[in-house]
Amino acid sequence: MGPLIPNGIIPSDWDSIIAILIGIAFGFVLEASGFSSSRKLAGVFYGYDFAVLKVFFTAALVATIGIYYMDYLGYLDVGQLYVHPTFLWGAIIGGIIMGIGFVAGGFCPGTSLCAVAIGKIDAIIYVVGIMIGVFIFSELFFLFEPLYEGAFFGNITLMDSLGVNPYWFIFIFTIIAIVSFVISDIIRKRNKKIFY
């Protein structure tokens, strides 16, 4: 029963090799979907290209449905998976800052790595920027610490916060995603086409 490495079914010596293989697949799919192009990524914010929205939500849905389906079939124990912890204000304020960085720079860290791999100079500068940002945070950690450590709710999921059944939530989330795909296509047809 999964997850395989934490349960010792695959020895942990394979960890790094698996990391590289998963990374290769991740990088290949991101680049092939056009995520090495900042102008394509930024399109989601201006309504001329919704690839980010479509790829992102499709991926999240396929992964969520897959995880819960494998749990239902008994191949994977959802309870053993790492749940990203909730630090309420850190998540909100960090997210807002990342949003400004996204629309200003046109990349997020994963996509900038893809663009670096194919030689985009703006992406190399962007990665340098990220490292400077991490450096600023680390040096001024005493300033950010209350935000970073505060409002901790534990490794909670939406079932804990909203009291919803996960299967119903996934179903509703799927409907929301499909509606947003339809709306995004309508918006894109109305907007002027941008070639890049």
């Binding site: 990342m98 860290p109 920027g129 400077i132 600023i136």
Partner: peptide, 10 residues
Amino acid sequence: GGILFGLGAQ
């Protein structure tokens, strides 16, 4: 943008 994203991600 990179500086902001790096800061926000931390």
